[in-house]
């Protein structure tokens, strides 16, 4: 195992080099991936259960972020994403308008949802636990995502699915309770472009 104490600069440089490289066998030391997170390679979805209405599903269509994966030293990986709340889409104009409105997400008051990781911990051969701070609805709370890497080690593009859940009440986002459940599940799936 090549354990090295590289400088941040060097790591970033390596990431950039990697980004410009095409697929191919990678040495452990050079195994750092740095990529932009955009709707071209990522899907951000949510599901919420309810009483008297089946599970509500939706996506956020507009967001931008950065991902840095250090395969040799997962703890040094990092992710940050900024989501435009108004880009929520629940598959129909009337339901989407309701979710955007002040009765729900109130996107006029809370236009941005922001997540930045604070720690990454390997939990299995293909899984990591990624914890970060989610600022949403005017509050900031830690959220942990379980990230499952779907692509084989060394395989490009990297493909992963991150799942996590928030308690809406923790953020003061209580609309519709208890008909709409307190728990909202978030699924982030990434593959392709730049990964």
């Amino acid at each position: 195992m090549v354990k090295c104490r590289r400088s941040t600069l060097m790591r970033t440089a390596l990431g950039l080099v990697l980004l410009t490289m095409s697929t191919g066998p990678l040495s452990a030391a050079a195994d750092v991936l740095s990529a932009a997170i955009t709707p071209a390679n990522t899907r951000i979805g949510f599901t919420i259960n309810g009483i008297g209405w089946p599970q509500t599903k939706g996506i956020f269509a507009a967001f931008r972020g950065r991902l840095r994966v250090d395969f040799a030293n997962p703890a040094k990986s990092f992710v940050a994403v900024k989501i435009q709340a108004a880009s929520v889409d629940a598959g129909g104009s009337s339901i989407t308008a309701y979710i955007r409105s002040s009765a729900m997400l109130d996107v006029a008051q809370h236009p941005v949802v922001d997540f930045r990781s604070t720690s990454v911990r390997r939990t299995g051969a293909q899984t990591v636990a990624l914890t970060g701070l989610l600022s949403f609805f005017g509050a900031v709370h830690p959220v942990t995502f379980t990230v499952r890497v779907l692509s084989k080690p060394g395989q490009r593009p990297l493909a992963f699915v991150a799942t996590g859940a928030i308690q809406r009440s923790a953020f003061g986002f209580n609309s519709g309770q208890p008909l709409i459940s307190d728990t909202a599940r978030i699924t982030i799936a990434s593959i392709g472009r730049g990964l």
């Binding site: 089946p54 598959g91 129909g92 009337s94």
Partner: peptide, 12 residues
């Protein structure tokens, strides 16, 4: 109706 958007519209 199972489609979520259509279902919501039908309620309206």
């Amino acid at each position: 109706v199972s489609d979520q958007g259509l279902r919501f519209t039908l309620y309206q």
